[in-house]
Structures are given as structure tokens and as C-alpha cells.
Design a protein around this nucleic acid. Structure first.
Lengths: 190, 190
DNA sequence: GTATATAATCTAGCATTGCTAGTTTATCAA
DNA sequence: TTGATAAACTAGCAATGCTAGATTATATAC
């Protein structure tokens, strides 16, 4: 009897449906437009059904964020693999980071700026998707630095800052490449 | 007849009272606790009075942010003035930046992470307080770089990223100085 | 001093939000 | 077919940003 299995499958699909709707609406109209009522409408169920999948609204943002970390990781890995040498890998990863952040602003917001309970620093409680993302960045940074962890944290922070300040219109969009060059160059000499 | 002057003065005081209450509550309980009703209670007036001072809630956040930029500017200027040489000035400014951001998280959030209409990149519409803050940072960066504007944007972004990632528990707090050293060192060699 | 116009303020309420208690409907095993 | 369990829904609460309309205080004209 595959009844239980079918139910499980349908539940999983519905959960996916919720996060996809959330992500789509967020990317099109901003996270403020992602209300529980709106999501319920979208999946054609009543509001309490949403709460049978997620404890609260933040948990939905968090689910989208985790998906974002997965996609981010494979993009960085792919870019690194396709680069001729470690130096190019670092440059391309930096460029790809900004493209990812500014190309999927709502997804990136879920990952980094919206309040969630996602953490990195604690090795115990950090979700594997987040650790994998960190490792993907560390892989391109490591060849150039003695202490790869500190350098990766710094590299990540610089890219995050560039993405945030550019997204909010605080630095000029047309010299992005020059700023990236500065960050990459600075890291090379350490 | 100083009646109009007295009224003006009282209005200004009340406006200041509102922003101070907002800042205090935000710093103690987070920006979510800063509601219009709460502020009205605090200043002992009814809610619509708040709206006679600020168009909406965001405008209150913005007013706090502008105050933050003023304080930020003078802190950076002071640190720079008190440094023995340009190199030290750069290092101390970087350290002071993080201290400011993490020492006044709600203020910093108003300045950088909460949604406001404050912009930098547009030279026309940028408020003077924001330009002054940028200039204060540019002053410590300029001695080391050909293109000071790009270098300042990059420096600022790196510091902002470090502050944000540390604030949200995504990088380790106990190696802050090492990361700062990397950022400063990287900038020196450009 | 009193009446009147204006400015200042308040009361009351709307619409939207996240979330939930309590009820109804569908599903499955006996 | 029946009874128990699971699934879903209706309805509503409390909090929020914000505002229309009534009310009170204030200043000017007589």
C-alpha cells in the first residue's frame, strides 16, 4: 500500500509549491508582498495549511534562503572549475558572486539581509548548505592565503558589502569591475 | 511677538523627542518595537501628531539614520586627526568603523540595512550628511590610492560587509582584527 | 471682554498583517 | 456501513500603519 508514500509525496510537492510561490512573488514584487494569505491563494489552500508546513513566515524565508545557498554553491563551483588557473578562478568567482547577488535580489535578501535564524559561525548548528557555500568560496581563496578561513571570511564580507551597497544605490553601478579588481588584487598580496 | 518662534521651537523639540525615542527603543528592543503607537505614548501625544512631523514610519527611520551619519562622520574625523600617520589613520578608521557599527546596531541598521530612500550614488539627491560621511572615509583612503573614489567605495563596502556578517553571526567575532588587517593591507598595495 | 476663525489635537476606525481556536469535511480501517 | 482519525476550512483575534472627521485650544478682530 503506497498510500502513505503518496501522501508524503504530495505534501513534499505542496511544500515546494509554497517556497516557489514565495520566491517568485518576492523576486517580482519584493518580500513585503509575500503574505500568508497570498501564498494560500497561490497554492489554492487555506491559510492554516501553510502553517502545517512552516512554523511561521520567517521559516518560509529560511527555506528559500537554503535553496539559494544550494544554487549559490553550485554556481561558484562551476565557475571555479571552468577557470584556467587559480587566479582566474578567484576573479571569476568574485564576478559571479556579484552577478548572483544582484541578479536574484530577493533570493539574496533571504540568504543575507532578512532576519532568519540561519547562522554560520557556530560549527554545530550551521546547516550543511551554508557550510558547503563557505567551502566553495574557501576553495578559490585557499591557494593564495596562509589562513584560508580568515581570508575567506574577509573575501566573503567584501563581496557582500559590494553587493549590498550597490543594491541599495550607495555606490556607482558602472565601476563594479574596478572595485572587484581592488578586492581580488588586495587578497592576492596577503 | 515671539509666539510663532516659540511654536516653531516647541515643534522642533517635539520632533527631536520623537527621533530620540525611536532610536532608544530601537537600540533596546529592535526596530520592530518602534511602532507609531509606542512613539505616541512616549511623547505623550496622540498618533496623528507623529504624522504631522513625519510622512510615515520610514521617514522616522530616515531621520535617525541621518543623525547616525553625522555622528559617524565626526567619529571618523576624530580618529583620523588623532592618528600619528596616514597608515595609522587608515587602520584606526577601519577599527572605528566596526566599533561604530557593532556598538550601535540599531542606528547602523537605520543607516544601512533598513529600507529608506537614502541614496549615495546620485550626486544631486544625496543628502549632505551622507556626502560628508563619504568624504570622511575618502580622506583616510586617498593617500594610498590613485582613484580615491573607487578605493573608498571598495573600502567602505568591505567594512560594511564585515560589520553585517559579524552582526548576523556569520563570521567569527574573535578574529575581527585579523580580517581588518587583511582589508587594510589589501588596500595599501593598490 | 467677547465672538470668530484658524490651528492644533484627539477619538475612532479602516484595512492589512501574522497567526490560531474550533469546527467541518474527507479518508481509511474494522 | 460505521466510527475514528487525519486533513482542511471558516472565522476571528490582536497588532500594525495610517487617516477622516470631530473636538478642543489658541490667537485675532471687534
Amino acid at each position: 500500500m503506497g498510500i502513505a508514500e503518496r501522501k508524503d509525496r504530495q505534501r513534499t510537492e505542496r511544500e515546494h509549491h509554497i517556497t516557489q510561490a514565495a520566491r517568485l512573488i518576492a523576486e517580482r514584487e519584493g518580500w513585503n508582498a509575500v503574505t500568508i494569505r497570498r501564498l494560500a491563494d497561490e497554492i489554492e489552500y487555506s491559510q492554516p495549511v501553510i502553517y502545517s508546513h512552516f512554523e511561521n513566515r520567517d521559516a518560509i524565508v529560511e527555506a528559500v534562503a537554503v535553496e539559494g545557498f544550494r544554487e549559490f554553491t553550485s554556481e561558484i563551483q562551476e565557475v571555479a572549475r571552468g577557470s584556467a588557473d587559480p587566479r582566474k578562478a578567484l576573479e571569476n568567482a568574485a564576478t559571479a558572486y556579484l552577478a548572483f547577488a544582484l541578479g536574484n535580489p530577493a533570493l539574496y535578501a533571504a540568504m543575507f539581509t532578512l532576519p532568519t535564524s540561519l547562522r554560520f559561525a557556530d560549527p554545530e548548528k550551521t546547516r550543511p548548505e551554508l557550510r558547503a557555500a563557505f567551502r566553495a568560496l574557501a576553495a578559490v581563496v585557499a591557494p593564495f592565503c596562509a589562513d584560508a578561513e580568515i581570508a575567506t571570511e574577509t573575501f566573503w564580507a567584501s563581496l557582500h558589502g559590494l553587493a549590498e551597497l550597490e543594491r541599495t544605490g550607495r555606490i556607482r553601478p558602472n565601476v563594479r569591475a574596478e572595485r572587484l579588481a581592488l578586492v581580488v588584487h588586495g587578497l592576492l598580496r596577503s
